[in-house]
Design a protein around this nucleic acid. Sequence first.
DNA 1: CTTATTTCAGATGAACTGAAATGC
DNA 2: CGCATTTCAGTTTATCTGAAATAA
Lengths: 148, 148
Amino acid sequence: MASGRETEQEPSLLHAVKQLELAMRAHLEQVLRPTGITALQYTTLALLRRRTGLSSAELARDSFVTAQSMADLVGSLERRGLISRHRDQRNRRRLIIAVTEAGSRLLDEYQKAVADIEARMTADLTTEQRRDLYQYLRRCRVALADGP
Amino acid sequence: MASGRETEQEPSLLHAVKQLELAMRAHLEQVLRPTGITALQYTTLALLRRRTGLSSAELARDSFVTAQSMADLVGSLERRGLISRHRDQRNRRRLIIAVTEAGSRLLDEYQKAVADIEARMTADLTTEQRRDLYQYLRRCRVALADGP
DNA sequence: CTTATTTCAGATGAACTGAAATGC
DNA sequence: CGCATTTCAGTTTATCTGAAATAA
């Protein structure tokens, strides 16, 4: 086997976050396999149901990606009929996103399986630690967002 | 502006991790711009210096990706001369990875700038909270890895 | 024979830059 | 005019699946 020798050194938070993201994604994709949608599409769809009235550009800013990248993602959800868009009458540049019936049904259908992944992932954490983890992640993200 | 209305609902750890990963990546890529290597290449290179004697297949298992995906990544580092590989004489299937002089120099050169990103990211956390965050992330990853 | 490691070939997803159309 | 939003076109990176060569 000869698994890598550990030399002392600072652990990397950057690496720990990336590793967890990969692990989560692998599990989520497995659960979502039957739907044909990706982990990213699912979590974005879930976000869009939580926060209504968003446009693609706002979503992009919120997610640290370019408007063009988000347009691809939103476009894929729209082509599948999981969201719809209509002009904001108060600012006709914006296209406001709404989760469709079909999108909402899909979310309902997989809500439990996805929650189970989170539950398994945090099985070794107390309720309080779980809440702390969420808050720390948010604070880190905000700290990076607020910078230059 | 009309930024999305918040409806009450469970926050998603899955989403929080993904968001932070995107934010980190954006900052890291910006810092690494002059080198031409990606955030993923950098963190993998750093890992390879921390843990010596690894093969690509081991790295893949450790990272929740397929052996083929990791082979691409390792290949890109090798083509840039940042790592080298040689046969494990005790098991001639394995190709053991070593960080080269050039790879080590690159890591040294950017170590401070990358540490600064972590520092800024965790600026609002106490030393203890920062340590907790790292431990929670690891425990979550292990919990997912140990499952089916 | 089976399994592990690596490699080759091809597909798709997820990000980017650059440029243009439209509305404020 | 300048700036925001969306879209179009093209590119690169990061992942996957499937299949084959080699070694334990």
